[in-house]
């Protein structure tokens, strides 16, 4: 049994190799997951927004309203102030998109697209773009650049501090992508490793393999519950940190 091959098959993206008139289509397991989540979000939220008299519709509408209030009062307003109100749709979309993509990985035969660094890099680039846009919108180009220099910095230190602050912002955006990537990848590696443990021990002795299955499955259930928590937690952390960084650019002092 090639453990490394099974691990990589479970974690890595797979190209389905469809071609259209000689053109290789970029259809992979991760892109299919991303597109599915996007379509579900578009159709589902549009359906909920239409409203209706049925109990289900009213429940869903109340749920979405509660969700938007949670993002607005829990993340956007405390960190960005009233200036952040116009960016509320971005944060609502970001949280729900990351959450659904994380949760999609727990469905059999689907993949966690957020365990792909390219997906997270694109999300972090969007958040980075928003942070820079906030700075430019509320302070202008000169004001935004001045915001990188902490108040009370002596003039001779400015050439040293300014690039360090710019690099800090870039690294903060990189860290956003890496944290989500590492957490989602590690969770799935642990899940498959626990399952593989049964077969590795089973190769030594069939009885030991059956014996190992009981604790391994217990741990597997525990880790799946933990993954469920991590899916929510990482979506929350990504959105909240974006709001904090955008807020620190808006309220520079």
């Amino acid at each position: 049994m090639d453990v490394a091959e099974i691990l990589s098959h479970h974690i890595l993206d797979h190209h389905w190799g469809y071609t259209l008139g000689g053109l290789q289509l970029p259809i992979t397991t991760h892109t299919v997951t991303l597109l599915s989540v996007s379509v579900i979000m578009l159709i589902g939220l549009y359906w909920v927004s239409k409203g209706g008299a049925s109990t289900l519709k009213r429940l869903l509408t109340a749920g979405v309203e509660e969700y938007v209030t949670f993002i607005r009062d829990g993340m956007v307003l405390p960190n960005m102030g009233t200036e952040g109100r116009s960016f509320l749709p971005y944060f609502c979309t970001l949280f729900l998109f990351i959450l659904l993509t994380n949760l999609a990985g727990l469905i059999p035969n689907m993949k966690t697209a957020t365990s792909n660094i390219s997906v997270n890099a694109a999300l972090a680039l969007c958040s980075g773009g928003l942070i820079v846009y906030c700075g430019l919108k509320f302070h202008g180009v000169i004001g935004f650049l001045k915001g990188f220099i902490p108040s009370g910095t002596p003039g001779w230190l400015v050439p040293l501090i300014f690039p360090l602050e710019v690099i800090s912002l870039i690294i903060k955006i990189c860290v956003l992508a890496l944290r989500l990537f590492a957490n989602m990848l590690a969770g799935h590696m642990v899940l498959i490793s626990l399952l593989l443990m049964i077969f590795i021990i089973g190769q030594l002795s069939a009885v030991a393999g059956v014996g190992a299955a009981v604790p391994a499955m217990g741990l597997e259930i525990f880790m799946t519950c933990l993954e469920l928590l991590v899916a929510f937690l990482q979506a929350y952390v990504f959105t909240l940190l974006t709001a904090i960084f955008a807020g620190s650019v808006i309220h520079t002092h």
Partner: peptide, 20 residues
């Protein structure tokens, strides 16, 4: 809560800046 999150990020920032 927000400040706790910012402080918890510092370690990862140190590691990422070194690696980059």
């Amino acid at each position: 809560k927000q400040e706790h999150l910012e402080i918890a990020t510092l370690g990862l920032q140190l590691a990422v800046s070194q690696t980059l």
